[in-house]
Simulated scan of single mutants.
Amino acid sequence: MGYAYYEITRNSATIQAGYGVEAVCERVGCTEKIDRGLGYLCGRTPGGDEHSCGGYFCGQHLYGDNQCEACTETDEEAA
């Protein structure tokens, strides 16, 4: 499987992902152009898991262990 284009299920919807898929940061109000590659992924699992939402964010909106603000706060509260 290549990582340029593939499909994932996130929030009960199927979306295209991969570094070949152009996108915009999912942070409300941010218009930074990104792709849906692993470098912009919140967490490590496309589609999300128990530690991340699986959204795609620009470098300015990924924190800590490559997580968005909401997932970083959730992990800190659980610790």
Rank of each mutant, 00 (worst) to 15 (best):
Q60C: 05
G43N: 04
D65S: 14
A78F: 08
F57K: 09
E22W: 05
C42M: 02
E69W: 13
Q67P: 00
G29L: 11
T14H: 00
D49T: 05
E26D: 08
V24D: 00
T45K: 12
C53D: 15
Q67L: 15
G54V: 06
Y40L: 00
G47P: 04
Q60K: 15
I15T: 10
L38W: 01
E77R: 13
C30K: 02
I15R: 02
C42R: 02
E50V: 14
C68I: 08
A79W: 07
P46L: 03
C68R: 01
L62E: 11
H51C: 07
A23Q: 02
R27A: 12
C53H: 04
S12Q: 14
G59C: 04
H51K: 15
I15N: 00
A78S: 07
L41F: 01
G39L: 12
C25P: 01
C42N: 09
G47T: 03
C71D: 15
N66G: 14
L41A: 04
G37S: 04
D65C: 08
T14W: 01
G55Q: 05
D35C: 09
A13L: 14
E73Y: 04
I34P: 03
T31L: 13
G18R: 04
R27G: 01
A70E: 14
I34S: 03
D75E: 12
E32I: 10
R36W: 05
D65Y: 12
K33H: 11
V28Y: 06
E77V: 08
N11V: 02
T14A: 06
